[in-house]
Design a protein around this nucleic acid. Sequence first.
DNA 1: TTGACAGGTAAACATTTGTTTACTATTATA
DNA 2: TATAATAGTAAACAAATGTTTACCTGTCAA
Lengths: 202, 202
Amino acid sequence: MEKLTERQREALEFVARMIEERGYPPSVRELCEEMGISSTRGALRHLEALERKGYISRASGARALRLEERERYSKAYLPILGEVPAGPLRYVFEEAEEWISVPANWGKEGRFILRVRGDSMIGDHIQEGDLVVVDPQLSGNQGEIVVALVGEEATVKRLYRKGNEAELRASNPAYPPIPLKEGGEEVRLLGRVVALLREKVI
Amino acid sequence: MEKLTERQREALEFVARMIEERGYPPSVRELCEEMGISSTRGALRHLEALERKGYISRASGARALRLEERERYSKAYLPILGEVPAGPLRYVFEEAEEWISVPANWGKEGRFILRVRGDSMIGDHIQEGDLVVVDPQLSGNQGEIVVALVGEEATVKRLYRKGNEAELRASNPAYPPIPLKEGGEEVRLLGRVVALLREKVI
DNA sequence: TTGACAGGTAAACATTTGTTTACTATTATA
DNA sequence: TATAATAGTAAACAAATGTTTACCTGTCAA
């Protein structure tokens, strides 16, 4: 895809923002005002360039603009992480293969989704295959359901504290608690489970 | 939500389709042509009605139409029914007060969402407050989790058949099975539970 | 140095588009 | 039956909008 100049990118972002937030595209004169251009000719040139380079398509008529590469990101989309995020959480999103739409108010900055493996949290009615929405947090409160990286594996557990000590407890008694910040394996808290999706109820 | 007349619904569907497929809203005259109306006044009346009833919002300017939030991405929005649908399921949608976005592939025609009350399906890890997505069906297969109207109350249960007889079973042994099509209360099948949302994991 | 290109100003123009006025017919409803 | 709401026709009008012409200013690579 042919590269855009800085001004052209500004124009594209404005068009995309208006469609996303307002629901319909801007007029040429609205684009003028946004970009501080006094003549419609200047703004029209940007639209022509965007069309020529394949970023938008235009038809005759008012506001007849359409984004070609539909990058209308919705805040209600979250990534499903196939691999457990090993590096900094910042790069999680670029590696995500699958995205899923969720109720709009679930979609906060930085959140992601993990698929639950195993039945260690069956006591809290979180079963194998469920998708849990994770809100990234470096620490957790007493009793919260969290996602932690134990060794190289992500696991969903409840967090319990006792003085300076803390541990992760399954709600299935078949699994032993995992001590936090103790001599054992390295444990890193990824975040808190805030919601859940079950794709197939059988 | 106030009901639409048939013509108003036609108009709304055209507006939504143009935004969805073409990327920007239709002009009044395009709406005229679509609906076979010779005067712009006639089409404008429909838009005014849609705005008054809260289905769209309008601003000054060409094609300045926007679908209200619940109408956007219509395929991925489902209504949460506060009251149990007593009448024909067809009218369920116009009475719904609350709508929620769901993963796009969950949003099939006619589906709706019910909030689970009680713990009768706790054995299947469906707990109080969970939102179940219901696919309307008049009959169900052996062992499926269904929603049925027992008397005036909607209930989530598993459907079991034995020859000509059938019954609804809770997965919590504390609840007795409910016979279907027997001398007891009238039971009507609303549909099958296909997915689940848990808004708050505590 | 020159030419291509992005970016811009200014003004006029053509068209689309929304809005309004006035009047008629149909349908649902109290 | 009376009344309101809905639906429509026709025509004119005002505003918004896209398009075009003509000319200017930089930047950058051949």
